[in-house]
Design a binder for these strands. Structure first.
Lengths: 139, 139
DNA sequence: CGCATATCAGTAGGACTGAAATCA
DNA sequence: CTGATTTCAGTCGTACTGATATGC
């Protein structure tokens, strides 16, 4: 037992790491990764987006968007075509297979939420999530 | 606004990243890094430790302990000598300069706690920290 | 020209794995 | 031989920086 355990930033880092481990473990069972889920989530149920718009929605760096989209395209989960109105952009669209993949991952992610928060009762979960919202970056 | 913001694991990851950014920013102002603080914290105010013991106390991988200690030794913040009772081990000890460095970093880390938790009032901080304790890995 | 978009290559820090040498 | 300790080299995820080519 060290005084590290008295540091909120340390406890926060550890709790986040535990949650991330649980999440990536479950996602890896179906060969998915976090970036992929976030991009599919950004594309599902909306009009096609440019890569910059995807990055904004999924909070991903545009370079990471480009790399991840290449993988998703190869897997047939998204379609990517030049924007006829602006040749600099790509128009990115989720495919039917991508929609199914997104539903699968959504179910997994929901289960993970439950597993991560299992140690907390309902009241504590509510307060905890409220606190997290107050601790988000950029306001 | 995406539904990512409804996921506790996502909010947790973002909050942790914000805290980590604030911490590393402040530490980097004096040329320090997280691993160094954690190792100095493990060594301050205790008897000399082996590297395995440091890793256990600071929750660091043995290999990362070895690399970080090499840097700390070069900076004169720790002393490292073979254990006369067990030639496999090193006996690691914090130096006078290391103690001063630790006090400096401790002050910085304390300020960071305040900055990170600034959006929460006292009651919410208490509940938040309690929740984090329940969400730590391995029980 | 300035600005936006997409892509390539690389870096940083934290956590981790394999393999090896040393020695109890 | 088994097991513990230290060390080297490298991987993985997330997030980020620099530089470049292209087109508005």
């Amino acid at each position: 037992m060290t005084s590290l355990n008295a540091l909120p930033t340390w406890l926060l880092s550890r709790a986040s790491h535990r949650a991330h481990s649980i999440l990536t473990e479950h996602l890896s069972l179906v060969g998915a990764r976090g970036y992929e889920y976030r991009i599919l989530e950004a594309l599902a149920g909306t009009a096609p987006l440019s890569q910059v718009a995807i990055g904004s929605s999924a909070r991903l760096d545009r370079r990471d968007v480009a790399v991840t989209l290449a993988n998703l395209e190869e897997s047939g989960l998204i379609d990517r075509n030049p924007d006829p109105d602006d040749a600099r952009r790509n128009v990115v669209e989720i495919t039917e297979a991508g929609q199914e993949r997104f539903l699968q991952l959504t179910s997994i992610v929901a289960d993970v939420q439950e597993e991560v928060l299992a140690p907390l009762d309902d009241e504590m979960r509510a307060t905890f999530v409220s606190a997290l919202c107050l601790l988000q970056p950029r306001g």
